[in-house]
């Protein structure tokens, strides 16, 4: 039972609860969709633990591979919405998502679903970093002043940038990381990903709080 309560799962659950409270009645469907996305994240995480747990002890790659499609879809949707405030985001986001889908399909066929689709994950991470930096570039270029301390959008992208950019370092060392065990028998990647998950979901939780209570209604 304790396996289900790791730093990652707890931070995801807390973020999901905050999203449910803050976004369930949000006027914007894209922000509202974050509740569904976080619900799927929590379910995936728990299923992953269950499959790999002592009861079944089977590979959870299929679960995470399926989740990868939703992760990419929801995140692309959010970036499409955020970038669209400044420019027409459709060409950029559709191209990015198409590249991801092609690689994902090729990888799934190639691996027959027996391994985690790491290339697709790498590509999606790089795409999200590019979107995040591009969003900040547009924000930087924009003449209007936004109180960033209380900007839901800024903190959502901050979470995504911190997570996916740092995650890129882990992806570079994916192979040694996935085999390397520390003195206590845990993988190093487990600790890094836990720290990154806490960072991501903290930023997102704060972003949802900003969205609900702190963002001026004129900017919603």
């Amino acid at each position: 039972m304790l396996n289900y309560f790791s730093a990652s799962t707890i931070s995801e659950l807390i973020c999901f609860v905050i999203a449910s409270i803050c976004l369930i009645k949000d006027s914007n469907v894209v922000w509202r969709s974050m509740v569904v996305y976080l619900f799927l994240t929590c379910v995936t995480e728990l299923m992953g633990v269950y499959f790999a747990g002592p009861k079944l002890s089977i590979s959870n790659h299929r679960v995470y591979n399926t989740y990868l499609i939703f992760e990419a879809g929801f995140t692309h949707l959010m970036f499409a919405f955020l970038i669209n405030k400044y420019i027409n985001s459709k060409p950029l986001i559709i191209t990015g998502f198409a590249i991801f889908l092609l690689i994902y399909i090729w990888e799934t066929v190639y691996n027959r679903g027996l391994q985690f689709n790491i290339t697709s994950y790498k590509v999606s991470s790089v795409l999200f970093v590019v979107y995040s930096l591009y969003y900040y570039y547009l924000l930087h270029k924009d003449d209007h002043y936004i109180h960033l301390k209380y900007s839901a959008e800024f903190w959502w992208v901050a979470g995504a940038l911190l997570f996916y950019f740092t995650n890129t370092a882990c992806i570079i060392f994916y192979k040694p990381l996935s085999t390397m065990l520390l003195w206590n028998g845990h993988h190093l990647i487990h600790y890094i990903m836990s720290a990154l998950n806490i960072l991501l979901y903290s930023c997102w939780s704060y972003s949802f709080i900003c969205r609900k209570w702190l963002t001026p209604t004129s900017l919603v």
Partner: peptide
């Protein structure tokens, strides 16, 4: 390798944080 990975991860994290600090 552990040290190298930790340092690289930290550098990437600082890089992202630097972008955020600059924007702020």
């Amino acid at each position: 390798i552990t040290g190298l990975i930790i340092i690289t991860t930290l550098i990437f994290l600082i890089g992202a944080a630097f972008v955020l600090a600059y924007i702020l």
